[in-house]
Design a protein around this nucleic acid. Sequence first.
DNA 1: CGGTTAAGGTGACCTACATCACATCTTAGG
DNA 2: CCTAAGATGTGATGTAGGTCACCTTAACCG
Lengths: 190, 190
Amino acid sequence: MKAKEVLKDYVAKNATLTDEQFEYFFSHFELQNFKKGQVIISQGSIVDSEYFVISGCLKSFFINEELKMFILQFAMPNWWASDFEALYNHTKASTSLDCITDAEVLCLSNANREKICSEIHAVESFFRWRTNKGYVASQKRLLSFMNNNVKFRYEELLNLYPQLYNLVPKNLIAAYLGVSRETLSRLYHT
Amino acid sequence: MKAKEVLKDYVAKNATLTDEQFEYFFSHFELQNFKKGQVIISQGSIVDSEYFVISGCLKSFFINEELKMFILQFAMPNWWASDFEALYNHTKASTSLDCITDAEVLCLSNANREKICSEIHAVESFFRWRTNKGYVASQKRLLSFMNNNVKFRYEELLNLYPQLYNLVPKNLIAAYLGVSRETLSRLYHT
DNA sequence: CGGTTAAGGTGACCTACATCACATCTTAGG
DNA sequence: CCTAAGATGTGATGTAGGTCACCTTAACCG
């Protein structure tokens, strides 16, 4: 399926745009291809776009002073990724974004998003919906973090994204769950 | 300061509404007064409104099977609170909301929010901004949870809301930080 | 004003997970 | 096809924070 159709299907589920409106909306995106390992946003740099994943898998992550990595999000097809704080506040990125696999993404600049949001009310509404969905997901993850142990959270993650099991190395899964790779390994072995 | 002015100042910082538009916007809210300890939303019930805090302090929380409480948010003046997942998806609340102190809030129903969002583009934009702010705050908290120990997170919380130190009992602070009250107590005593 | 309940502190002990060290095994490039 | 780097498993040991038990002090209410 072509990138345009992927986005169109996604939008159609949550907003009502005419074909012309969608064409205009879509004209503000730029299709980009990245290779496995390529960095899209890096900590400390300026961020001016957000990314809608068509194919492949990205990760948004943070590396602390001791060089330990924490993964905030695995971005699979139909997900959005960026450093939204830096993007909206025009500050430097506090997190990075890179490619776990080769990936195809649609890039939308901050300026273009604000432009189409102000031009088309339904688009503004669509982005409000999307952001709300992200907020709710983030709150759920926080709650699960406080309430559940590693094993539960690991199985919860695999239930939600079964593809991750084969796609992503275990050390990255551990960095998402907030535990060491050794502990994750010991959940089912030893 | 009256409730209307509190909301007006808050909105003015992040959206451009004419006085008439604001009056109309405001007419969709209902002022409510609650006593300390009163429950606004309880786990398992239907949610149909969100709340903007004028004065006092609320908490949104979750109680698990072992009756352990986790606090998702302390809602201080100028903050919004609800169970947003239940509110948007018309499902039953998975979290509760109650009053730590006597509180004055502006109540906005889901139906009214959607109504004014669709009627006034600037209002839709305002709510997109607000939701984005909540999302960013939630991601930051998650990251801090993974990256920092209890002492750091406690000091971070008190830096952000110094009022909490005297306003809220330590067992609630502990439930927000995700540790036992004993551990929190031992940070500075013993 | 007296009694009940909430808030807070602290000792003893337990457990989940971290860290370090090292041993395979797999895989992508040259 | 060979080799270095990445991915994974596992033992030994350390530690932050949990749990339980009990005590003191403060606050609220009939």
